[in-house]
Design a protein around this nucleic acid. Structure first.
Lengths: 228, 228
DNA sequence: CAGGCGTATGACGAAATTGTGACGATTCGG
DNA sequence: CCGAATCGTCACAATTTCGTCATACGCCTG
């Protein structure tokens, strides 16, 4: 199942078996995972790798999870990265304090890997509410509703076509080569022929009707959404 | 996050850590919070403090949450104060809410702190627009009474079907993928196949009859309730 | 203006997704 | 204990969507 859509998750956890268990399950869910075994290292990686999500154990060598949490939330680079705290049952008081320090959710050990994955997805989805609708000439798309309109009339797109259009619109005016589009739309490890992009651009143009002209071909480079 | 706009919330809950957790998050969300550790005390405070909202645990010493709920709803002072019920087991609540004790919503433990805040906001918002029940075309549901009507005629739904419909309606127009629906309807710990959602959507459509068309399939993403 | 290269187009089989009906397990009330 | 209701899963069919290919077209250069 590839619902993690390749987003990076950092696990800060000193118990190896716990880290491995999480790592395995998150990878299986389509996330990219990196790990750190203590607080200092975790902070370092959080700044360097810029993960989309952090799983943070409360009990850590060198620097407690709470401390790490506070620092992360205070740092402009990482302040908005969601944090999920892991706590042992006995530490109930601490888990509350953890939330006070800005963690976004908590899970007590022992936990079910599946639950973790679900919670992470839920939290990440929340952040996605930044899905604002985009407009380009007569075309407007609303990611949350998964809806496209041309001159106000709804147009039915397949999921690939939708993602393709969205990607082009998000970078309006800039040329995007086929490899970039493959990465964005098909995923970072797709084994797809670059020519396939052409076909989908064609289908997209077709469905958009006359408005399909906004997608320009830049010979030798790729495609671009016309600016004006 | 200052969206609570200073409204008062009363938490009636005997487990201290749960109460603290809620209290903390609600304060962070901009609400004013008071607490009571048992039913009698809760009733007292509900009358004295006149909170804008009450969170009520089902299991309470001295007087059960149900009892408290019924008394509150019968008292002119507090009759119109929204109540959110907390329950340990998902099964418990299905019957209880069906018994029309008057709670406005419910959440099962363990819950995510954020979820609670979101629900409370939703309910308070609903109150502002004086629109208690949700409507979508010919379908109207009354979450408190656990009742659904199509063109005024009552339709008998199972508890899962009801939750599914309710979830779709609460986010009308927006696509919700199967994982999201599993989270909302089945809960975090569920180990359910995503395809099961399909089956329940089918059953739901069937029971809704012609009106079932409002549930649209968005291929490759999930389901959506038609907007208009 | 011809050749070469890159792109557009249409067609087709493969793959993925969803709808549907059925089945067994479980629960609940009688 | 039985029967009805509910639920999760499965297999299969209907349908849509996808990736690739062969071919036609168009732009650029020389």
């Amino acid at each position: 199942m590839e619902t993690g859509s390749g987003r990076k998750i950092l696990i800060i956890e000193d118990e190896n078996d716990v880290a491995d268990l999480l790592s395995l399950n998150l990878r299986k869910a389509g996330f990219r995972v990196s790990t750190a075994a203590d607080g200092a290292n975790g902070l370092q990686k959080a700044r360097d790798d810029r993960p989309d999500f952090i799983i943070l154990d409360l009990m850590l060598p060198k620097m407690s999870g709470l401390e790490v949490c506070r620092v992360l939330k205070g740092d402009t680079v990482t302040a908005h990265t969601p944090i999920l705290m892991l706590t042992a049952k006995a530490e109930e008081i601490d888990r509350i304090v953890g939330l006070e320090f800005g963690a976004d959710d908590y899970v007590t050990k022992p936990f079910s890997p599946r639950e973790i994955v679900l919670r992470i997805r839920a939290i990440l989805r929340r952040g996605e509410t930044a899905d604002e609708s985009l407009k380009a000439g007569p075309i407007s798309i609303d990611p949350a509703r998964h809806q496209v309109r041309v001159n106000g009339k709804p147009v039915r797109l397949t999921s690939l076509e939708f993602k393709l259009l969205r990607t082009l619109m998000q970078r309006r005016g800039r040329v995007q080569d086929r490899d970039r589009l493959l990465n964005e739309v098909w995923g970072y490890e797709s084994v797809i022929d670059t020519r396939t992009v052409d076909t989908h651009v064609r289908r997209l143009r077709e469905k958009l009707g006359k408005a399909g002209d906004v997608i320009e071909t830049v010979r030798g480079f790729g495609y671009r959404l016309r600016e004006n």
